[in-house]
Amino acid sequence: MARMTLLPYDVQPDTAPPVPQSYRGLWRRTLLTTGDGRIDRETRVFWMQTARLHIDIRVPATRGTFGTASALAELTCEQLIDLAAQMGFAGATTVDEAAVAIDAGDDRLDRCTWHRQIDFSPPSNARDLGTMRFETPHVVLEDGIEAVYHERWERDPASLGATWAVRLSRESAHAAGVLADDPDGAARDDAPSVFIARCGDFFMLARSRSPRAQAVLASCRGKRLVEVVRDPALAIDDVRALLDFEISLGRVRGNDGARWTIELSTLPWREGQPAFTDSVSAALDQLQAARGYGADPT
């Protein structure tokens, strides 16, 4: 097998300081309220935060079942529309501590900015900004700055521990089984971006659709993905390309790399399956054991 290249994300040059330790881990959203009175406790929303990288997945509780389907090519138009209701994104996080005054008093809130580098949804002009207040070390309350919403996040204690993030080279992404096109195409510019993060016992994988498919969304700025894929002028193969975007959350249950198992995914047939090939899992195990962001496993 070709040499794997795991590019450490959390030590990339950046003018912003790393995210404070208090934010790192896997957080589950347990409450959302919006300015129009909507309350949501059912959507499965998880946010993983490392020193710099965030990965976020949002799966509606109403998402249907897909029988024995094992690929987007096997889904009907209605099933594809169902998948388009999901959300998720990944990118860099910055935290400005004590940046927002509360009623001009002495108390101040942190301001978080999530800079999305890949996004399941079409492009948007909106920024993702929130004020953050820790109710306890494992409960943080978020309020929108440029949108009216309130979210409650609870951190899973099992996500405490070694935390890191990497970007896979294109060749390694093929070896990991998260790119389905032929390996010879890995060197072309249309290969998607792939990130992997781990916090304690949990990991997340984010793999974007191809830039070619992303270009289709460029003219749909501000729309919901469901609106885009419902367009009868869009060929079904283009719909499938738009939905070929994976965000998966899983758990590592021991030192055996084969136990990097997906529990929730934007591609439902991946759930319950190994996330990576044995060789890639073993390389990630070595990285975890070393806690070496600059490690170069083979």
Score class of each variant (00 low, 15 high):
residue 265 S to E: 04
residue 227 E to P: 04
residue 28 R to G: 13
residue 144 G to I: 06
residue 30 T to W: 00
residue 275 A to F: 02
residue 32 L to S: 13
residue 131 T to Q: 12
residue 233 A to R: 14
residue 10 D to R: 07
residue 204 M to P: 08
residue 195 F to D: 02
residue 73 A to V: 13
residue 283 A to N: 15
residue 9 Y to L: 03
residue 149 Y to L: 03
residue 89 F to E: 13
residue 178 V to I: 11
residue 151 E to Q: 11
residue 36 D to C: 04
residue 214 Q to A: 14
residue 268 P to T: 11
residue 159 S to E: 03
residue 195 F to L: 03
residue 223 K to D: 11
residue 96 D to W: 00
residue 124 S to T: 15
residue 93 T to C: 08
residue 80 L to I: 10
residue 111 R to I: 01
residue 271 E to A: 12
residue 250 G to E: 11
residue 59 V to F: 02
residue 69 A to P: 07
residue 182 D to C: 11
residue 90 A to W: 01
residue 14 D to N: 11
residue 116 R to S: 03
residue 55 I to A: 07
residue 223 K to H: 10
residue 38 R to A: 12
residue 231 D to W: 05
residue 279 S to A: 15
residue 265 S to Q: 08
residue 62 T to S: 14
residue 103 D to L: 08
residue 195 F to I: 01
residue 22 S to V: 10
residue 41 R to W: 01
residue 252 V to W: 04
residue 96 D to S: 13
residue 40 D to I: 05
residue 130 G to V: 01
residue 55 I to Q: 07
residue 280 V to L: 14
residue 230 R to Y: 02
residue 122 P to N: 10
residue 60 P to M: 09
residue 194 V to Y: 00
residue 242 L to V: 05
residue 221 R to H: 03
residue 7 L to T: 13
residue 261 T to N: 09
residue 290 A to H: 10
residue 232 P to F: 07
residue 249 L to V: 14
residue 285 D to H: 08
residue 157 P to K: 09
residue 226 V to F: 01
residue 69 A to D: 10
residue 35 G to D: 07
residue 128 D to T: 05
residue 138 H to P: 00
residue 3 R to V: 09
residue 32 L to C: 09
residue 132 M to T: 01
residue 200 G to K: 13
residue 177 G to T: 11
residue 141 L to F: 01
residue 64 G to C: 07
residue 236 I to D: 14
residue 152 R to P: 01
residue 190 D to F: 06
residue 279 S to W: 06
residue 116 R to W: 00
residue 295 A to K: 10
residue 200 G to R: 13
residue 269 W to K: 08
residue 126 A to N: 12
residue 290 A to Q: 15
residue 48 M to S: 15
residue 253 R to Y: 04
residue 103 D to N: 13
residue 46 F to S: 13
residue 38 R to E: 12
residue 164 W to L: 11
residue 166 V to K: 12
residue 172 S to M: 11
residue 212 R to G: 08
residue 292 G to V: 05
residue 193 S to F: 02
residue 30 T to Q: 05
residue 294 G to C: 10
residue 186 A to E: 05
residue 62 T to R: 14
residue 46 F to E: 11
residue 45 V to E: 14
residue 272 G to Q: 14
residue 60 P to N: 12
residue 226 V to H: 07
residue 153 W to G: 06
residue 3 R to H: 13
residue 294 G to R: 15
residue 141 L to I: 08
residue 199 C to N: 14
residue 76 T to E: 15
